[in-house]
Design a protein around this nucleic acid. Structure first.
Lengths: 198, 198
DNA sequence: AAAATATGTTACTATTCGGTAACAATATAA
DNA sequence: TTATATTGTTACCGAATAGTAACATATTTT
């Protein structure tokens, strides 16, 4: 008899719930202060059950990273394919990046990337971010080339940009006092024109 | 017989070394992956000796915070006493803030603030940062008042500013490829005028 | 010199927690 | 129905490590 969902789909859904709950707990209490027992009990299962969905504790971070980097890169694919100026690309990237990282799984990734204990995983994590950073640098260089962005050190600018954007993850709550549109406007205004009134 | 240094001075020096070494290790390996035995062996002492200088592991974070916030507030006292425009104040704050947080103890504080397990300590840590943030907001408001800073949401601007400045701590190494002066120039240019070429 | 204080060590406890082995139940397919 | 794969549980192990008690040594003060 055919179910609504296949086994594989149900399995994927459960994994998603684990990631979301774990990510939330990691952000609230911290990675080391959140035990696998804590995470398991959020799902109303026991710890060994988790090991059917994840390899080990660190694997949760890896999976959060895969999901998030996948989204960011897909977004970059779209934005960079458009026939617009470098500045407009950067503008759109920022707008949509904020939309992506306001999510527990993404916030968890941002906060823990490059901190895996396993050396291979750590290297891969660092590379994943560097790749994204390089794509944004490419946008900045295009903007400098087409004259829409002030001549500057694209490396430093890209990093500063990510610092302020990723910093959002540690204080911005989607349901908080600050409206997402107002936040996005302020970020875009600051990045675009700075603070000077002149 | 009078020594070069009094007991109290020697004690303070040893505490400083402990804080510096611990902060460095926390930044390199992470707080939870650095044991008190690790820290002790850097001093060529044993773990119980540390407890003569610190109350417990968390107290290291508290002491790093006290040192760093003390420095920042003293700097703000100076800068805010000057008879200059709000924008110039902000400019000087940024320049000197970068100078302060390029230091292992300060970096350790930035990375771990508000993450103490003890509730009282955590609340105090959050308050310490909020106080500093409020002083910077005051600078921004003054700038808006005297017309030197574009009209904007001072709360969001202050946070974004701290995000990008504090973000430096996670990648900038004083002995690395990027020169501190060039970095400061780029930050000031970005905050001042943004990325637009027009 | 003797007393008091500061600084250090060795040896140990208690607890937390990631991970696993062995076993039980349930759903799917033949 | 029977066989098989999947999903779950209970009970346990081993390692790491924050913190302490008891004891030893050095340094300053009286």
């Amino acid at each position: 008899m055919q179910q609504n969902l296949t086994r594989e789909e149900k399995r994927q859904q459960k994994l998603d719930v684990i990631l979301r709950n774990a990510a939330k707990a990691f952000m609230e209490r911290g990675y080391y202060k959140t035990s696998l027992d804590d995470i398991a009990s959020m799902q109303n299962v026991t710890k060994p059950t988790l090991y059917y969905y994840i390899k080990n504790k660190e694997d949760i971070l890896v999976k959060c990273e895969e999901v998030t980097c996948g989204r960011i890169n897909a977004m970059l694919d779209e934005v960079m394919a458009k026939n617009i100026s470098g500045y407009e690309m950067l503008y759109q990237f920022i707008m949509r990046y904020i939309g992506i990282i306001i999510d527990d799984v993404a916030r968890c990734h941002v906060r823990h990337r490059g901190q895996m204990e396993d050396e291979m995983l750590r290297a891969q994590s660092i590379k994943n971010h560097k790749d994204i950073e390089n794509r944004v640098r490419e946008i900045i260089r295009r903007g400098i080339g087409d004259g829409s962005i002030r001549n500057c050190n694209s490396t430093i600018l890209a990093i500063l940009l990510f610092d302020s954007l990723n910093g959002l993850t540690s204080w911005y709550k989607a349901d908080g006092k600050v409206d997402q549109n107002e936040l996005t406007d302020e970020v875009l205004a600051l990045v675009g024109s700075g603070v000077c009134s002149t």
